[in-house]
Write a protein that binds this DNA or RNA. Sequence first.
DNA 1: AACATCTTGTCAATCGATTGCAAAAAGTGT
DNA 2: ACACTTTTTGCAATCGATTGACAAGATGTT
Lengths: 337, 337
Amino acid sequence: MARLNMRELALKLGVDRATVSRALSNDKAHLVAPATRERIRQAAGAAGYRPDLTAATLRRGRSHTVGILVSDLGNETFIDVIRTIFRHLDARSDAPPITPLIAETLDQPDATRRLIHTFLSRRVDAIISLASTEADTAILQDAAREVPVVLAIRAIAGAVFPSALCDDRAGGAMVATHFAERGHKIVCQVQGPPLSATFKNRALGFSEVCASRSIVETPQRIFAETATSAAGKRALDALLAVSPRPTAIFAHNDALALGVIEAMRHRGLRCPEDLAIVGFNNTQLSRILAVPLSTVDYPVEEVSRHAGELVRNLIADPSYRFESRLFTPSLIVRASS
Amino acid sequence: MARLNMRELALKLGVDRATVSRALSNDKAHLVAPATRERIRQAAGAAGYRPDLTAATLRRGRSHTVGILVSDLGNETFIDVIRTIFRHLDARSDAPPITPLIAETLDQPDATRRLIHTFLSRRVDAIISLASTEADTAILQDAAREVPVVLAIRAIAGAVFPSALCDDRAGGAMVATHFAERGHKIVCQVQGPPLSATFKNRALGFSEVCASRSIVETPQRIFAETATSAAGKRALDALLAVSPRPTAIFAHNDALALGVIEAMRHRGLRCPEDLAIVGFNNTQLSRILAVPLSTVDYPVEEVSRHAGELVRNLIADPSYRFESRLFTPSLIVRASS
DNA sequence: AACATCTTGTCAATCGATTGCAAAAAGTGT
DNA sequence: ACACTTTTTGCAATCGATTGACAAGATGTT
């Protein structure tokens, strides 16, 4: 069961472990004579030698590992971003591959603190936080004094971190503009939990355009406690009580939109005739609904790539002059509006 | 930037590092006087001391880490299983928490080998492979000589690993029985890629019941190259060319079923009147279709829990007499059949 | 008072790879 | 053959925590 280690390999070849280490490394391989280097590499391959990365990490102080915090693994968009980040971190063949550690916080600050501590104990080279809330600010700032911390998807109000975000405000604005062009005069929003900057910005962008194009936004905004279809269902009741009655609504994500649509179906209301609706994220479900859902496409690829690059660059040089970026989403008009 | 390490903490407290180590450990804390122990724990907490787990791993030979291989992170069922496994691994407060490492193989054997090697280099305590294919057999067997390897979701034909699986054969049988009870005489399957044991077993269970209840299964089976809705769409053309023409079809998962249904809509065919359809997995989409989809509910909780337990037990004792288990899924009848 | 037992803490080796420094070997020019 | 540079290799310390062996001190027993 005992694994072959470097000392044994060196012994077998009659060289020093230092020579083996250098021969197998990327950056110091030139320090060993070509013939010896090849001999060592052959033997290592043949013997199935695999270096112990925990030992290497201890000595080097670099683990080639990044921690990814995500609030909800059930969220399709988050998963898309994570897997795309994976690819960007793993793909580059010049640099050593980076192994991601993933943790689900479920938006619980205690769990988040615990998970961040675990990451730091495991000596991650950086942390990417997807969709963190304000409750995490202090912990993340703490962590940032040890390793680079990069934010993706959700900004944190009042804190500056390198980040890769979607321009949610622009997204909200696009929806309002769309409603204006279709001649809607009275509109309403079903807003996600307001502790998330994402939803705040979507609301803001939408309202701004409504004001400038003199569309009436019903004074009562609908707040969903969670951004889920169940909450969307409940929202319809509230919506119908609103006066003046809106003819179009902007749901802050596709799940909320779905809930509203299902509730409408129950009541015999038709979409878009009775009520037009636009969602956000362009998830799979938006395409497959009986009435395909208009929605805002999330710039997954760009956000992920930038997050990956920030991490790579900040790991290479902690004082790297990073640039946080906002990526513009795009409206996809389908039958629901 | 330099982190506080155990030596410094010990120095500050005027005790030996060994004493600190024992005071902070779970199993050896009783070896240090209660007063000293508390003093050390207080100080450690106050100073924000966090042990370096890579050093501990190196010394102990245990990383408290497991590697999870998954073929496709976009698959809702896989994600559900992963996050449920997380919870079972992380939750137990008596044992130290286990950090999962996740890797997406995309069913590419080369990538799989690379990722497994990375896991082993990082000294994972065990590997869980979700939905592996036969192409991975040799690599997994290799890995199994170093650490416990547990299979979930998909068995590998001809190889014995501790596993936690869904009884796909029973699931297929349920669908056939359901068709029989509804009076269908001619049925057909849209089968997922046959290199996956999952789909083989679903097909088998279905066919067995068809035979015993003298339902005609059309001789031409439809094989989808991938288990996606696009493949499902293409499958409908093939289906319509089949003779005798079936009145009900069993799609091997919900995505395939969705594809078939969308293609039907394009042709103006009605579900279930013209063609009844049942899927598999009970994914979100099955609930939200215009005609809610009958499907087989996947026993996510049971599979995940058992996989987690296998891993825990095998880590604690590699010679543990494990029991591989099959969990029975359940048919959910909705409007589509 | 002598001896056994238990408690508490220290010393030093260890896990496996990396790397600064210096020694040995090989190459170069005169 | 000699002085000198350059290449190649070896030695030994190091990263930070854990643990077996053992010593010193405290407590108990007869």
